[in-house]
């Protein structure tokens, strides 16, 4: 059989650099959605802690251990990223593989919040959006997840909209960098 080469969602789009700002692709490995059944959240957290060392995150937060992250993605929903789900959640949660469905970006450098302030209707300044915060919101008209983790802003969007997502952010980066350059 032919040997197939895996291509990441942003392979031909990234990185983008503008002044002090960098937009790069993050390759999270497997992404698994975990949706606890009614009343099972505590049991899910215990199973995840025992197997992986991270709990199910509270709303608007993520939990992490090393490269492993469990990111809140909505009402009774979180994504496990950076490791295979080894906990047995049978009877506790609905679990699906999301690995190929998302593009994961990291925006870093001075002014990163100013870039997203042009696109996202939520306050992402460090005081309101500290390390470990993770929200669902919009970027333009696209539904995304935004988190602050590892010294940058992580933006997750649908893979089918990867090109639009990168273009929107790159345009805003150019505007912010130009304004910074103009003093």
């Amino acid at each position: 059989m032919d040997r197939l080469t895996a291509v990441s969602p942003g392979a031909d789009l990234l990185p983008v650099r503008q002044g002090a700002l960098t937009l790069e692709e993050v390759l999270p490995g497997e992404i698994t959605s975990i949706a606890p059944f009614r009343g099972q959240r505590k049991a899910v957290t215990q199973a995840l802690l025992a197997a992986l060392g991270v709990g199910f995150p509270e709303a608007n937060c993520l939990t992490r251990k090393g490269e492993l992250r469990c990111v809140w993605m909505g009402r009774d929903l979180a994504f496990l990223m950076g490791a295979r789900l080894t906990a047995d959640l049978g009877g506790l949660a609905a679990v699906t593989d999301q690995s190929d469905g998302w593009i994961v970006l990291k925006l870093s450098g001075a002014g990163a919040e100013d870039v997203l302030a042009r696109l996202v209707p939520a306050d992402l300044r460090a005081a309101a959006f500290p390390e470990g915060a993770a929200i669902r919101t919009q970027l333009g008209h696209m539904n995304v997840s935004v988190a602050r983790t590892g010294g940058g802003l992580q933006i997750m969007g649908f893979r089918s909209m990867a090109r639009t997502l990168v273009q929107e952010i790159a345009d805003a980066m150019a505007s912010v960098a130009a304004r910074a350059g103009a003093g």
Binding site: A59, G74, R75, L77, I135, R136, Q138, N143
Partner: peptide, 9 residues
């Protein structure tokens, strides 16, 4: 209201 672009509630 549906929090469509947020938590989905």
């Amino acid at each position: 209201w549906h929090h469509e672009a947020g938590c989905g509630a």
